[in-house]
Design a protein around this nucleic acid. Sequence first.
DNA 1: TAACTGTATTATCACCACTAGTACACTTTT
DNA 2: AAAAGTGTACTAGTGGTGATAATACAGTTA
Lengths: 132, 132
Amino acid sequence: MLYQIDVMSRVPVYEQIIEQTRRFILRGILEPGDQIPSVRSLSAELSVNPNTIQKALAQLERQGLVFSVPGKGTFVAGKAKVILAEQKRGELEEIQRQLRELIWAGISREELLKMVNELFDNRWSETREDGK
Amino acid sequence: MLYQIDVMSRVPVYEQIIEQTRRFILRGILEPGDQIPSVRSLSAELSVNPNTIQKALAQLERQGLVFSVPGKGTFVAGKAKVILAEQKRGELEEIQRQLRELIWAGISREELLKMVNELFDNRWSETREDGK
DNA sequence: TAACTGTATTATCACCACTAGTACACTTTT
DNA sequence: AAAAGTGTACTAGTGGTGATAATACAGTTA
């Protein structure tokens, strides 16, 4: 199963769906034109109410990341990747804010630069969420 | 007034108080031993219910950042800065996650490294929240 | 026709941030 | 001693919202 939600999380289920979909598109796991799992199938496999799924998809459509065709399904939009890249750029300020805090907390310039470089070098290795 | 809250924000008022207090301590605006504005004064100046203020201070005390003396007031703990630095280190993974997303969005290694260096160089210039 | 798709509606529940009001005990100031 | 300020505790109520439940309608596909 592609999607995975954590019911214990404080972040709303519908936001988790949005977040994961965005990540799938950004990483090319979901390509433009690809069909997103249907409302009912997602609802069943995630044990989540259909309304919750629909809420997430509706929001994704408002952002232009997907488009829905009644009777057919919901698909990844062609400009999805571009839109996502732009949005990430918009989050730059927030990331800078966090890095500033980290600097105030005493991290060294060398350590931070090294971290960034390593992130680039390991760009293609998948992120593992487990602890093993 | 030191503190400032945004009632329109989606982030809870008591979390804003916590967040700002942490920032004040981290940046040395509030030093160990300094007294934090009283529950009632904060309540009055921020137009916020005393319970909301107390909720924030109680949580800060649980984290060991402040300590309260009934009848006297609430003060910044001696080890506050150390605790804060440790906590910030703990947030490293989250920051890395965001930087990874940024890389996936197409930011170049040079641009990111340049940004980090500039953050260090401008470390002492105050952050302005206004748009002027 | 049957089984799938998205979409819409209404009602209900639960949690939580927040407010309101009151009260108690302690410390400092006058 | 009195007053004013401090932290702390308790109960009650309100509003927003995330989530569920149960239907229903319309379009598409096998």
